[in-house]
C-alpha cells in the first residue's frame, strides 16, 4: 500500500486559515489501511478544525466525506453535488488524491492533509516499512526476494557496503542492512554464487528518473 502520515495540525491550520467552509475528503484505499486518511481520520481532523474554529471565535463549517478511492475519476464525481458548498478542500489521501481533486474541480483550492511517504506494508500493528521504490523493472528474485533498491540506503546491487555492522545499516541502528539479510537468505538457500555475479548498472529509464510515467493498456482503453 501507499503509506502516508498526517501533517501536523498546526501546518494544516496555517494552510486553511483564510477559509470558513472546509471540506475534508478521505479515501477508503491505502490511507484507510494505514490509518491516516479514512473515514475515522476524516472525523478526527474535521473535529479538530471545528474545535479550533470555536476557540478562535471563527464560524467554521467543516464537511466530511470519504470516497471509495481518490485515484479514480468515477468516484471523485461523487463530490460534484457537495464541493460547491465549500471554499477549501483538504484531501487526506496520498498525493494522488489532492491532484485528482484539483484536476476535477479546477476552481477549488485543494490542500494536502497528509505527507505521502512510501510504498510498503505493515510489519507489525502500527508500524509500516518501505518495500518498493517503484523502479519499474523488478529484480527481487535476484536478491532472495528482498529489494536492495528500496531497502539499501545506497541502492547497491552488488553486495553490502563497508558500513554494514551487526545486520544494521551505517545510517542508523534502526535500519536493517538489507544486504545482510540478502546474503543470509541466499546462503540458506544455497544460492550464494548468484550474488557473486557482477550486476551491471541498472537502467533507471523505467523509474522516476526517466520522467513522469504513464501506463497504457490498449485492451482496456475505451
Amino acid at each position: 500500500m501507499i503509506v502516508a502520515e498526517s501533517k501536523p495540525i498546526k501546518e494544516l491550520l496555517e494552510m486553511v486559515k483564510d477559509f470558513k467552509k472546509i471540506l475534508v475528503v478521505g479515501c477508503k484505499g491505502c490511507v484507510t489501511v494505514c490509518n491516516v486518511g479514512g473515514a475515522k481520520e476524516v472525523g478526527i481532523l474535521a473535529s479538530s478544525l471545528r474545535i479550533h474554529g470555536r476557540k478562535e471565535g471563527r464560524d467554521v463549517v467543516v464537511g466530511e466525506h470519504t470516497l471509495e478511492r481518490q485515484c479514480d475519476p468515477e468516484y471523485i464525481d461523487e463530490l460534484e453535488e457537495i464541493v460547491g458548498d465549500y471554499d477549501a478542500v483538504i484531501s487526506i489521501a496520498c498525493g494522488v488524491g489532492p491532484q485528482f481533486l484539483s484536476e476535477r474541480y479546477p476552481e477549488k483550492k485543494v490542500f494536502p492533509g497528509v505527507n505521502t511517504k512510501f510504498m510498503g506494508g505493515a510489519v507489525e500493528h502500527g508500524v509500516w516499512a518501505e518495500r518498493c521504490a517503484g523502479c519499474g523493472t523488478c529484480a527481487i528474485h535476484l536478491f532472495g526476494g528482498l529489494c536492495p533498491i528500496a531497502r539499501c540506503s545506497k541502492s547497491l546491487l552488488n553486495g553490502p557496503c563497508g558500513g554494514s555492522s551487526h545486520g544494521k545499516c551505517e545510517i542508523s541502528k534502526d535500519v536493517d542492512c538489507i544486504w545482510d539479510m540478502i546474503v543470509n537468505k541466499m546462503t540458506e538457500q544455497g544460492r550464494l554464487s548468484e550474488l557473486l555475479e557482477f550486476r551491471p548498472p541498472k537502467s533507471w529509464t523505467t523509474a522516476r528518473d526517466g520522467g513522469p510515467r504513464k501506463m497504457i493498456r490498449e485492451e482496456l482503453v475505451k
Binding site: 495540525i9 479538530s48 474545535i51 476557540k55
Partner: peptide
Amino acid sequence: DILEGLGI
C-alpha cells in the same frame, strides 16, 4: 498532541 497543536 492534537489539543496542543490547536493551541489548547
